[in-house]
Nucleic acid binder design. Structure first.
Lengths: 353, 353
DNA sequence: TACCCTATAGAAAGCGCTTGCTACGGCCGT
DNA sequence: ACGGCCGTAGCAAGCGCTTTCTATAGGGTA
């Protein structure tokens, strides 16, 4: 049998109530008693029964972080930063702050997103952080709103990180939204300024906010330059992975041999795009410029170094973590927009001729 | 107030016991009754109270996956595969299999590793998967052994994935160990076969099993070729990140200008190494060959494509997930070695001259 | 010296669920 | 036709903790 609170109480010659209070540190306990209890805890190697504690206290120390793809550093960086902010501190042995920050991988599937939310609701999670772009399907948005409202009603803090505010729901503590539109616009403006006019765009999955916003920024820049034919042939959608970038770029090159630049939905896709360009015997950036988005750590090491848009993923994740913990005050209106910075590097240059 | 089992029972005009049994599906319930209960659950939008359930049943549906660095795809791929295997199935609505697979980021810190284990023990986790190399500090190993034994005693399945079996502890369901030694050996043999004799090695942190095993493989190959001067000057240790690869390579190049190849502890480090080589005005592979380890997805897109050692991360993670769930039988002796395959690509070539 | 207030500890009532055991029809076997 | 068994459902006893309320010393005050 495992050691229980009662065992510790017996050994310390106090009541279970006192042990509980020592462990939670939320009630005055004489120093001598505390010490006795702590010693008993140590000697018996006692570990609190989480479920029992959560049941009695009607709260748990679980914090869920939902990500679309755990194998993608984009999410890994945010999740890691958030997790550090949540679980790291409170060096002083016991005491309240001991939260269990866990990341859940939805794989981009709306069902799994909902499933995880239910599971976390079941565990009476203290907080939930949703990262990355959202699906724009109305049914799913409604389901999410409902779920999040229920979570919030049960006392769970809900924080969005890198995801636009949910329309219907005021259940959310805070939304940290990346300026995908602005970043996308500035990236394309950079290309236009270099002299490009035929720019291909390898977009992400069509139904995601991130995809749409980046694409909108791109088109805004195009429109401002008087370019209008961007709608159909120069845009290809696909998942956020290298294979998609590779295939889409091949397709783009086939459709429009006069292309001088390719903008990818993110850095990973851009890597695939680069591979495709090279496999066609074209040089980067002399023949074709390529650009990405996110500025993941490997982008600076690409050859040539990838022009991209930097998102402060680490900072954003850390802030989301603090928001979830209640350590930081929410931004005014609960919404903050996080700036995206253009990183012009070697993969973009003026078009040939 | 939230909806409880009793509310559902009242609405379905049955006893709470019956509702519980319907939900758990582990006791015969008449079809008509089941249907009535299920309808009530739906109508009331009931969500099980996890802590209460775990307390009463003395088990929980939490499965923890510990990783050293969540921002590193090496771990992300394994964790994602394991998580899919654990949480994904059981499409039929309710029923038992609904586990909550969560990943915990230790950041490579032994304290956090232990802390997470305690937290999971507290939650009475159903299983724990430890991924990646272990720290070789005796004190930490002892602490881990003790902790894992206690977890196992409490019924938690413990699985190691990409980590060598723990010496003292038989508490572990299964260990899936990568053949880091063999992979490291074959990689260096490849370089030797190409004609290299002065090979630099950028190793990982000194106190990790992964680091040591890969390095041992390297030295075994060297020794077999009659090369012995590898000990000191040609090996540099550092963390598993690009910056480390960059700095270490610069250092290596400075120490031994006659170097013709650099082997990195993993692909990420190799990327940094490549950057350093290029920044020195040297060409890959004409002047210097570079090789990595792991064969992460981006490695094939490096320029030139990176020679490396492929580890079946996805398969290993999935298998670990199944082992944790008890869906797959453990390998004989509880230990399986997972083969590492040499991927000779364009970043390695015969030395100049 | 008597009284009240503060500081500290204990008693006990749950928290919402699971499950061993009991209860109760109807069907079978002889 | 009757006893027993099978198939279902309910009762009630916890699971191990938190927390409200109550009890008991001291110590200060008048």
């Amino acid at each position: 049998m495992t050691v229980t609170l009662a065992d510790v109480a017996a050994r310390a010659r106090v009541s279970p109530a006192t042990v509980s209070r020592v462990l939670n540190g939320n009630y005055p306990v004489a120093a001598s008693t505390r010490e006795r209890v702590l010693r008993a805890v140590d000697e018996l190697d006692y570990v609190l029964n989480g479920p029992a504690s959560s049941l009695a206290a009607a709260t748990s120390d679980l914090v869920g972080i939902l990500v679309n793809d755990i194998a993608d550093p984009f999410f890994g960086i945010m999740a890691g930063a958030a997790q550090t902010e949540i679980g790291g501190q409170e060096g002083s042995g016991r005491a309240g702050g001991e939260k269990l920050a866990v990341v859940c991988n939805t794989g981009g599937s709306p069902e799994r997103e909902l499933t995880y939310l239910t599971l976390l609701q079941r565990q009476r999670a203290a907080a939930v952080i949703l990262t990355g772009g959202a699906l724009e399907d109305p049914a799913h948005i409604a389901a999410m709103s409902a779920k999040l409202t229920k979570l919030a009603d049960a006392g769970t803090h809900v924080v969005l990180c890198g995801r636009p505010p949910l329309p219907g729901s005021s259940a959310v503590v805070a939304s940290l939204a990346f300026d995908n539109r602005g970043g996308g616009r500035r990236l394309t403006e950079h290309l236009l300024a270099l002299g490009h006019r035929r720019i291909g765009y390898v977009a992400g999955p069509a139904e995601r906010t991130t995809t749409r916003h980046r694409l909108e920024g791109h088109r805004t820049a195009l429109a401002a330059a008087g370019l209008t034919d961007d709608q159909g042939p120069l845009t290809v959608h696909g998942p956020y992975d290298r294979r998609s970038g590779y295939k889409a770029t091949l397709e783009l090159l086939r459709r429009s041999p006069d292309l001088t630049a390719v903008v990818a939905a993110n850095d990973t896709v851009a890597l695939g795009a680069c591979a495709a360009v090279r496999d066609q015997g074209l040089r980067i950036p002399q023949d074709i410029s390529v650009a990405g988005f996110d500025d993941l750590p490997f982008s600076v090491d690409a050859v040539p170094a990838l022009t991209t848009v930097r998102l402060p993923l680490h900072e954003a994740g850390a802030r989301a973590g603090r928001l979830a913990m209640g350590t930081e005050a929410p931004p005014p209106g609960g919404i903050a927009t996080i700036a995206a910075e253009l990183m012009a590097r070697a993969s973009t240059a003026p078009p040939r001729g």
